[in-house]
Write a protein that binds this DNA or RNA. Structure first.
Lengths: 176, 176
DNA sequence: TTTAATTGAGCGAACGTTCATTCTTATTTA
DNA sequence: TAAATAAGAATGAACGTTCGCTCAATTAAA
């Protein structure tokens, strides 16, 4: 809260005129992030090129964000594990996000840009793995350069969405 | 600390006989994780099939772990952002891990299992993105099933390591 | 002058931590 | 063998600090 006060250029007392609690403040920030994400989705959905739309989406949320914003997101994610109410809100947002991503994939598959017989839910889960991973790398590793890694990530996304899954070679596992 | 005490079946006082501080305790847990990871690496390195070795590594660290272990890792990662000493230790571990991964990739590329003209550092960064992403999804999303998503992740890894990067189509960006 | 905006010292609760105390186990003495 | 003693393991109430939060007091705007 001290940090947030400093960042907002406000005393704690004044900050509490705008938000009744830390929880409400976090939910407010989450809401802002949600709105921002949904705006980006609108842009991505209106792009006739699915992969370009997705790249812009990724750029906006994983590269262009300031270190501070990324840090704040990390903090909220961690808070999720402590505060059940925040966890609820967070999951509601993620549910909406998933639906939006699934829709994006479906329309792309209808246009033939990606596989048609895709397990959309799993694919979206994989995308979210990538997003969270990028976010946390940024939050935790000062040497991490999203600009360098993003092309690889996009390459991976392209593969998983356009190439049929390899027949999982059921090689006998080497037990450790 | 309460949770850790409960988990350890110990009173706080007794726990402090084994660790001089919460910081030391966290560093101890990190050290245990590090040792475990290094053991897994040894197994992966001795597997003649790179991808099978990597899959076992991933399975061990991202699927087989209990929800509790995953949660603990998440907590430590979050702590990293607050406690500089823990951040230092964490980064030291990650540096070692990176080196180990780079070595793994290099030997695989020498055996012709993956691309030879790979930017190993970036590839490892991408792998760590995937690992952190899987970890955090598990920590934050109760509906996340690593068993379902892992095949997709492995597919992606296979692509990025064996297929030369697409010439990044420098399409004009659609500004939001 | 009234109203709204803003402050920051300070509150209670929760945190990480400590320590006087009790319980257990091992060792010595009778 | 049983009692006495010493040592180690474990406890949990309590400590000081930090956290989220409040409110009497002050400043700025209407």
């Amino acid at each position: 809260m001290q940090e947030i006060c400093a960042e907002a250029g406000m005393s704690p007392g004044n900050l509490y005129r705008y938000f009744p609690s830390k929880e409400a403040l976090i939910i407010g920030i989450s809401e802002r992030n949600r709105a921002d994400a949904m705006e980006s989705f609108a842009a991505a959905e209106s792009d006739p090129n699915f992969f370009r739309g997705l790249e812009n989406l990724a750029r906006h949320h994983l590269v262009e964000r300031t270190a501070q914003e990324v840090g704040l997101c990390a903090e909220i994610m961690a808070e999720t594990r402590r505060n059940p109410e925040i966890a609820r809100v967070y999951q509601a947002i993620e549910t909406e996000l998933r639906a939006r991503l699934v829709a994006l994939l479906k329309s792309a598959s209808e246009r033939g840009e990606i596989l048609s017989d895709l397990d959309f839910d799993s694919a979206v889960s994989a995308l979210m793995v990538l997003a969270d991973g990028m976010s946390w790398r940024r939050a935790v590793d000062p040497n991490f350069d999203p600009e360098v890694v993003l092309p690889l990530i996009l390459h991976m996304v392209h593969c998983v969405l356009t190439e049929p899954p390899r027949a999982q070679a059921a090689l006998p596992e080497k037990s450790s």
